[in-house]
Design a protein around this nucleic acid. Structure first.
Lengths: 192, 192
DNA sequence: GACAAAGCCTAATAGGTATAGGCTCTTCGC
DNA sequence: GCGAAGAGCCTATACCTATTAGGCTTTGTC
């Protein structure tokens, strides 16, 4: 055993930071090695291959995001909770574009089966439970909100809103309000 | 001049087909050259570089999709039109997963400025005009629907719905119906 | 029939992934 | 203290991809 200048964790952290600053496609083993001032093959002692490195970023991001999501919805309900949750996602996507990109891929088995993956879907489920939507409709509602959230952030990320007025910012809250109304009426008609 | 066994168009077509069958990341100049039974450098006479090839796929897909979208909404309005438009997108995403992936990236200048790009946003704008939503709200509505559509198809594409019941199919129509209601009430309150 | 050039080819460079095997510390048992 | 063990980084190497440079063949034109 020698002093571990490198660990799996530092390698993945470095890769994630690199993704944030230069984009996920810039995450190569070479680039990460350069960043850590180490030769490329040295990384193989800590990550199996490039795919595993990317999966590592995904799992890291999933964990960070679900932590924030859990905090955001704690003690809030309905519109408050929905807004907070959406805001957390958007904030994360902006602050950590590379980590966020890593969540938008078909994830490897390791990432899919991770605790982090399970945990990250719980916050949204909790918010929707608060709206009192019927059990059998809840999964549809979850899919609606996650589709919107994903789509909006994605389109914003790739700049699809960038060349039309008004700014994406000005659509953001109004749209969340609309979705809140939709969820509210959804639950009302279920219990007439 | 010699017999043009290769043209820019065939190269891009081949690349697009390869993307559909093996994923967008499998689209390399080498792979396309192999497919066309030609040496890699020969492609450079027809596409500037790899980025241009990918942009070519994007523009091709944009054109194909906007053609289909235009047809789908012609002669329909409101719920009918909305459903048809969503269905066209979903069908395209399923039949041409690689081409569709190519639409989900930050596009190059060539793609952004293309006629195809402008044309592809028109169908959705037309559908929403039919709902009679106030001018200043229409952009928001467009963004809501495109976010949902993008997000849903993306999540379906990466398999995010694959491991929870019921199938994505069963959420699809109910969610479009919900959005139809949302758009309808949106316009009603604008004209009380 | 010769020329001009379009369009493919080979050759070569640079940079990325991945494997194999070697060298050097650190640490543990004694 | 000391020697064996082994963790962990390194060099060397093979192969793949992008991209450029320059040559050869074929074909249309005059």
């Amino acid at each position: 055993m020698s002093r571990p200048t490198l660990t799996a964790s530092t390698v993945i952290q470095t890769a994630a930071d690199l993704a944030d600053s230069s984009g996920l496609t810039a995450v190569t083993l070479s680039a990460v090695a350069r960043e850590l001032d180490v030769r490329t093959p040295s990384l193989y002692g800590h990550v199996r291959d490039l795919a595993a490195l990317r999966d590592g970023i995904t799992i890291l991001a999933l964990g960070e995001l679900s932590d924030r999501a859990g905090e955001a919805v704690a003690g809030r309900a309905r519109r408050e909770a929905l807004t907070a949750l959406c805001e957390v996602h958007r904030d994360y996507a902006r602050r950590h574009p590379g980590r966020w990109e890593s969540l938008q891929r078909r994830a490897g088995e390791a990432a899919v089966r991770s605790d982090e993956a399970a945990r990250s879907s719980r916050a949204l489920a909790a918010v929707l439970r608060g709206y009192g939507i019927a059990e059998e409709d809840r999964v549809h509602a979850i899919r609606l909100i996650s589709s919107f959230l994903n789509g909006f952030l994605h389109l914003e990320h790739v700049g699809a809103f960038a060349h039309s007025a008004p700014s994406a910012d000005e659509s953001w809250m109004p749209l969340i309000d609309r979705l809140d109304v939709l969820l509210t009426t959804w639950s009302e008609e279920a219990a007439p």
